[in-house]
Amino acid sequence: MENNLSKQPILIELDLECREEHYSRAEAWFKNVQFTQASFRQLLEDTVPKIEEPHIKDYLSTMLAEAIEHESKAEDLFRIIGRKPSAIRTTLGDFLGKSREVWADVIALAGGAKGPWQDLQQLYVSNLNSMSAFAVAEQLGLALGIPRILDVTFGVVAEKSTSQLLLQECALEMCSKSILYKQPF
């Protein structure tokens, strides 16, 4: 019952062809990470100037600095697997960020909200979208056995989780002012 294993050990899904195939599939997802993060950053960039209230403006400005850093880390994911980041996905992400602003205005009009509150709501959704994209990238890193991907994603997901709590808090705090009193902030 030797199975010739002693002379020729068996590798499972570790040959070059299989690894490259898995890397290509991971690369496709990393483009999604880039796209969703660029979209979030663009929406955040456009929302900060609309906020007057100094504390919320400060929270979002800090979040924007992190978002720019996270966008750079999304590009690192490609390099870890020996691929190049996509320039097109960043541009598409910028476009999607702008689209969300328009959509926020439509919802605000229909829902009777006043001021930048709907942009906060859209940020809440957009951050969740990009955070989950990073979290999926992390799982792909674990599935491929690449610790450096975890090193990149874990900190990003942790910071975006905190951002998610903050965006939820700001949106829930300010909704009554925006909807019932129809006042900006």
């Binding site: 199975n3 002693s6 050990p9 499972i12």
Partner: peptide, 8 residues
């Protein structure tokens, strides 16, 4: 000896 590798 190691006879198989790559298990998940």
């Amino acid at each position: 000896e190691a006879v198989m590798a790559g298990f998940s």
